[in-house]
Computed example of a mutant assay.
Amino acid sequence: MRFGVTLVLLGLSGAVPADPRPAGGVPMPVPAGAVKGDFDGDGAPELAWAVPPPLTPGGMDCVGECRCSVQFSNPAIKPLAIGKYIGGALTNLGDLNNDGKDDLGVLPDWFTSCWRSYLVFSYAHGRWAYAVPPFAVHCNEMESGVKPIEKDPAHPGYVIERYSEFTEAGIVVKTKSVAVN
């Protein structure tokens, strides 16, 4: 039952992809919504997926701490603790910092509120770190298909960040170029 709740919370559906690095040569199913990328830069693809905390039967509270993590099909990649969330949508952002590894975007889920902190992670030296500091996005921005972050073609080593801000005109999307770690 928890698996079904997880899929609903993450807004995921569809076929379950096969693990590209199965142990013993037998494909292992992973949750729908997994993203594929070369997150460790070894030239072989991995899958990444969010693992939400268990929820109470009503689905409006966590059993224990509300902590979400991201797991990887390659056991050599350490799981990524994304914080006090109940799930999240993952995006392979490509190689934002030109280190030969794909970077991972996370739009965390919570029980309420359309405001989120968009998280961008890079994997280096066996650990995960923010590629840029978290920035605010609103569900209006995400639902309208705005890409929250991408390489800045005019400035090597920088990314274009699209963030939401509440102004007198309402919630607006603003853009800035920031250095990537």
Rank of each mutant, 00 (worst) to 15 (best):
G4H: 14
L7A: 13
L9C: 08
L10W: 09
L10I: 06
G11P: 06
L12I: 10
L12H: 14
V16Q: 11
P17V: 08
P17Q: 04
V26S: 06
P29L: 09
V30M: 15
V35P: 11
V35N: 13
K36S: 13
F39V: 00
G41T: 04
D42N: 14
A44E: 04
L47T: 03
L47V: 06
W49H: 05
A50K: 03
A50T: 08
V51A: 13
P53H: 08
P54E: 09
P57C: 03
P57M: 12
E65G: 12
C66F: 01
C68M: 13
V70T: 03
V70W: 04
F72P: 00
S73Y: 08
N74S: 11
I86S: 07
A89W: 12
A89R: 12
L96I: 10
D99W: 05
D102Q: 05
D102L: 02
D103Y: 10
V106C: 06
L107Q: 14
F111Y: 12
S113P: 03
S113D: 15
S113F: 13
C114N: 15
L119I: 02
L119F: 01
L119D: 04
A129F: 09
Y130I: 07
P134R: 06
V137L: 00
H138L: 00
C139W: 06
E141G: 01
M142I: 15
K147T: 14
E150F: 07
A154D: 13
G157D: 10
V159Y: 06
V159P: 01
F166D: 09
G170C: 00
I171F: 03
V173A: 03
